[in-house]
Amino acid sequence: MRISAEEITVGKLLPETVELAVNLIKTNGYVLFEGVLPKEQVENLNNKFGDMLESYMKERNLNPNDGFHNGTNHVGMDLPFEEPFCDESIIAHPFVTDVVDQILGDDCVLNYFHTNTSVQGGKTPQDVHADTGSRYGNRCEVNLPIINLVVNFPLVEVTENNGPMEVWPGGTHLHPDNWYGPNAYDKSKLAEHMHSFKALMPAGSIMIRDDRMWHRGTPNQSQQPRTNIALIYKSAANAPQNGSISIPQETYDNLSEKAKRLLRNEKIGSPVKREYKLEQYAK
């Protein structure tokens, strides 16, 4: 979906836009708002994250030329809850919260603050998968309501060449609960005979998706990482009471009331947690 210039300027979706987006997620498994974040903000996010990614990979001896993670060259790492990543336009963007609240209820929470990066040099795609398991193992043979919404912010333009996410929309999120369990039929085998497409999008877009929609990462054949912020919003009734995001008290106190409520179950008062050594990051 292309958001109107008026909506971008005022920072508020029109009611009819929200209604369409909600129904696209319910019917097709996802919605994509193209080119929402300002170019300067996206470039700053990508530059800051690029430094962190470099340190993270060096510490773990992840060499793109050698290949890693079964040849996918895929890196997932938690973000530190600090600027510029914890900006309200990321954790509580009004375009996102308007849609999320309609689906999960306005008492939902944010409990995942992460990144997914396709690093150059990958040779193989990921297996086709959903980002969740079944709620009731093999017992439930009906589709259940959405309880998790994944929100992705690409920090570079996603092209055919730099490892776009391949998606199988239009119903893969609407299967019975036991289709997401450990004994379900191999999704990769089924996916070979199903329609899919690669989700190409400008930097600074916003993708909101049901975490049950089938997808996979593809090899990055460019010369630069394809960086992407990944958040998960969860219905409050299904959310863990003890979160994992470490948020300093002062940072939390300076958030809006909306953001505070979204993060109320996290580790408030804990120092920022980093997955890299600070002295390597400080150049």
Results as ranks from 00 to 15, higher is better:
G217M: 07
G171D: 10
R135V: 06
R264K: 15
N238T: 09
S196Y: 01
A5G: 04
P219C: 05
Q102L: 00
N65Y: 09
V119H: 08
S222D: 15
V18S: 10
H215M: 08
R226W: 04
G67H: 10
Q221W: 12
D107I: 00
L13A: 15
T172N: 01
R135G: 06
R2E: 15
L14V: 02
E7T: 09
K123C: 04
Q249Y: 01
K39S: 13
V22K: 10
Q126A: 08
I3S: 08
C86N: 15
Q223P: 00
E59H: 03
V75P: 12
A237L: 06
A236S: 12
I3T: 12
A236K: 14
R261S: 14
T132Q: 11
T251M: 14
V96H: 09
L24S: 09
A199L: 15
H129Y: 04
A199T: 03
L262E: 05
E40H: 11
N242L: 07
L79N: 05
F81D: 14
N23H: 08
Q126N: 07
R2P: 00
F33C: 09
M194P: 01
V167S: 00
G137A: 09
T72N: 06
V167E: 07
V119G: 08
L278P: 00
N162G: 01
D127G: 03
L104R: 12
I147T: 14
P84C: 13
M207T: 02
P271Q: 13
T27W: 02
D131A: 10
F197W: 14
N46A: 13
E83M: 14
E16R: 07
A236R: 14
L190P: 00
A191V: 00
H195I: 03
E59N: 03
Q41Y: 09
E250I: 12
M57K: 03
L53V: 09
Q120T: 13
P248C: 11
S196Q: 04
L155H: 03
P38K: 09
G67F: 13
E54T: 13
S118D: 07
I91V: 15
P84I: 14
N70L: 12
I247Q: 13
N63C: 10
M207I: 09
E82M: 12
N28Q: 10
L149K: 13
P125A: 11
L32V: 06
P125R: 11
T17W: 01
F197E: 13
G122W: 07
L79P: 03
E166K: 02
E16I: 08
L24V: 05
I103A: 05
C140H: 01
I103M: 04
R212N: 03
E34N: 04
T132K: 05
M207A: 10
P202L: 06
D211R: 10
N46G: 01
S270R: 07
